[in-house]
Structure formats: structure tokens, C-alpha cells
Design a protein around this nucleic acid. Structure first.
Lengths: 154, 154
DNA sequence: CCAATTTCAGTTTAACTGATATTA
DNA sequence: CTAATATCAGTTTAACTGAAATTG
């Protein structure tokens, strides 16, 4: 296969680009979410919970690359606002499994369109194939970065 | 043009993927940078300064989507550690332009290889073309998200 | 006894807002 | 006068470490 250029040609610029895009996205998301009184971090956690119900705070922390204590604070903030509830896992009395409430789903529904507009703006000028490719390459990047040891069900 | 699928097919999952990848990258970068006593945020600012010398803290703030005060704190932290120096712009007495010191470049050199390893791990299994494509799509995303009003030279 | 989960306490960094002096 | 820059002060959120209780 023809290696068109040296492997370091792109340098550490992909990491830099990821960082910059995330900063830009967060800036836009903050504007969108401010009227609702939730932070981008809290919203991100809530979107994960929307798709992965009955997960514990500790598992959510591992998935988000933060400590259990940090995620504990975020989860408690969401609980205080009524967006989630927690109840004991019958099979595992130490665990508190999280469920998104109707209020939580309501919030997600309220901001869904605005969030989609940010994504549409970000991908302006891209073809559907390019959008799919970007998403696929980001997922691959994430898979490559996570520790392989993690084998949880939630 | 044949729109192969509905535009919402990928949903807001690209934003989610960007966020997750950034969290993963930051987690790895934190490990790498901890022995050097700099945070990922400080390091990111320093890499921008490496390529864009003679920029002001305020301009750096705009580029990084944070307030001037926030970037002021980060810049002062880098200054205290001796990684940058600031001096008055002769043409603009109010501005303090930033220059990376030899110590700053030394730090960047010391961590460059480790940072590159993170990027290599992240792009494991990708062809050179895919790496380039990922970088290109991220740059496009960033361009689409920045305010067009900004027309600074630095 | 050990590992995982949760939580309490304390600390630090990074973000914000608001206000102020300076200067082009 | 206005806008931009830098900075001072105060606040909040998000991250950490350390420690403790509980449970499998």
C-alpha cells in the first residue's frame, strides 16, 4: 500500500482539533442549556442515562473518565432537580441504580431540537457520508482509548 | 442530489462522540502531564502559543471560547512557572503580548513524544487517509462553529 | 479479608459575573 | 465616548485526594 506521507504528518493536531471542537461545542451548549439551569456536564450525563437506564453512578463515572466522587456530585445535582431518581438494586443492596424521570425526559425533549441545530451548524457543508464518517472515526477513537479491562453489563 | 437517508439519521450523536473522545483524551493527557505539574488546559494553551506567538491573553481567550478572565488565570499560571513571558506591545501600550520561553519549549519537547503516543493509540487501525479525513472533518467542524465576526490577525 | 459502591470532608482548578483602570 | 485589554474580587462548578461505612 502506498504510504502517501510519513505517519507523523498530521502530528498531534488531531488531539488539538478534538479539544478545540469540544470547547466550541461546549460554548454553544452552555448557551442553549443556561435557561434550563443545567450545565453541559449534567446534560451529557443525562443523555447517557437516557440510553443506558439502570446504571449506577460508579459505572457512569468509569464510562465518563472521572472519579466516582466527581460523578457522585453530578448525579446528586440531577437528583436534586428531579431529573433522575435512584433506588436500591434488589440484587445488590449496596448499589443505587439510576432512572431518568418524566421531568428528565421532558428536559431532554425540550432541548433536543436546539442541540440538533448545533450539530447541523457544526456539520454544515458536509455530505451525509462525511457526517457518518466523522461519527464512525470518533467512535473508533473512543474505543481505542478506553481500557479493555472494563467488562460491565450496564 | 440523492440524500441517501434522513439528515437526522446520525442524530446528536456526533456531539456526544466528540465529548466522549475529549474526556478520554483529557484523562490520558492528565496522566502524561501530571509529573510535569501542568494541567491539560495549561498545556493546550501552551501548544496554541507555540504556533501563534505574540498573541494577547484576550485573543487567546476568544480562540478558546472562554472569558478573558478565565484565560487570564491560565496565562498567569504559565507565567508563574516560567513557561511564558509577557511584554508590552510597543504599538499598543495596553496589550501584553505573550512569548513562549525556552523553558516552555523545553516542556513541550519533553512531552511531545508521549502526546504523540496518545494520538497513535487513538487512531489505531486507521489508515493515513482516515487520519487525515478525521483531522479535516474536525477542522471543518471548528470553522463552522466559530463566530464569523472575528477578524484578528493573531 | 478484599473489592466495589456510596458518601463525607476538604482542596484545587477552572469557569463564571461584576467592577475598575487604562488606553487606542 | 466607546471598545478593548488587563486585572481585582467574589462565586460556583467540577475536578481531585483521602477516608469511612456498607455489602457481596
Amino acid at each position: 500500500m502506498p504510504r502517501s506521507r510519513n505517519p507523523a504528518s498530521t502530528g498531534p493536531s488531531i488531539l488539538y482539533a478534538v479539544k478545540q471542537v469540544e470547547l466550541a461545542v461546549r460554548s454553544r451548549l452552555d448557551e442553549t442549556l443556561r435557561p434550563f439551569g443545567v450545565t453541559t456536564i449534567q446534560y451529557s450525563a443525562l443523555t447517557v442515562l437516557e440510553h443506558r437506564d439502570n446504571i449506577t453512578s460508579a459505572a457512569l463515572a468509569r464510562r465518563s473518565f472521572v472519579t466516582a466522587q466527581t460523578m457522585g456530585d453530578i448525579v446528586m445535582a440531577l437528583e436534586r432537580r428531579g431529573y433522575i431518581v435512584r433506588h436500591r438494586d434488589p440484587a445488590h443492596a449496596r448499589r443505587l441504580v439510576i432512572a431518568v424521570t418524566d421531568e428528565g425526559r421532558g428536559l431532554l425533549d425540550e432541548v433536543r431540537e436546539d442541540v440538533r441545530l448545533i450539530e447541523l451548524r457544526m456539520t454544515t457543508g458536509m455530505s451525509d457520508e462525511e457526517r457518518d464518517e466523522l461519527c464512525r472515526l470518533l467512535r473508533t477513537s473512543l474505543d481505542n482509548l478506553v481500557e479493555p479491562e472494563e467488562s460491565e453489563q450496564a
